[in-house]
C-alpha cells in the first residue's frame, strides 16, 4: 500500500468522523459557570483583603492602647449600644477589641457565606 494514497484515503474516510456537541446551550451554560467562578474568586479576594485589614486595625488599636496606657475597661463603659452590652458583660482588658472582633466576624461570616453560595452555584 503506497503511503501517499493511504494518507489521502485515510483523510477522506476520517473527514466523516468529526463529532459535534449536540447541546445548543453548551457555550451559554459553560460561560455561566465561568462567570460564577469568577465572582467567587473576586469575593474570596475581597474577603481575604478585609480579613487582613481587620487584623491590621486590631493590631494598631492594641498597640495604641499599649503605647498610651489607656485603660480599655474605662472606654468600653462609655459605649451606649446593644453591642456595648457585650463588652460590659465581658470583664477585664480587651473589651473594645472583643467588640470589634465580634462585628468583624459577622462581616466575615457573611462574606464566606456568599463565596460558598457562589461556589455551589458554579458546580
Amino acid at each position: 500500500m503506497e503511503n501517499k494514497d493511504a494518507d489521502k484515503l485515510t483523510r477522506t474516510i476520517l473527514a466523516n468522523s468529526k463529532l459535534e456537541i449536540k447541546n445548543p446551550d453548551f457555550t451559554f451554560n459553560l460561560m455561566d459557570k465561568i462567570k460564577a467562578e469568577n465572582r467567587r474568586k473576586i469575593i474570596i479576594r475581597q474577603s481575604t483583603f478585609y480579613l487582613l485589614m481587620f487584623i491590621s486595625i486590631d493590631a494598631v488599636i492594641w498597640t495604641l492602647f499599649k503605647l498610651f496606657r489607656v485603660s480599655i475597661a474605662d472606654i468600653s463603659l462609655l459605649i451606649e449600644s446593644t453591642s456595648s452590652e457585650i463588652s460590659k458583660a465581658s470583664s477585664g482588658k480587651g473589651n473594645v477589641l472583643l467588640l470589634t472582633l465580634f462585628i468583624q466576624s459577622i462581616i466575615l461570616l457573611f462574606m464566606i457565606g456568599r463565596a460558598r453560595f457562589l461556589n455551589f452555584k458554579s458546580q
Binding site: 468522523s17 468529526k18 463529532l19 459535534e20 456537541i21 453548551f26 457555550t27 460561560m31
Partner: peptide
C-alpha cells in the same frame, strides 16, 4: 475559545 474548540475537544 469554547465555540472554536468544543467540537474537536469533544471528538
Amino acid at each position: 475559545f469554547i465555540d472554536q474548540y468544543k467540537d474537536m475537544a469533544y471528538s
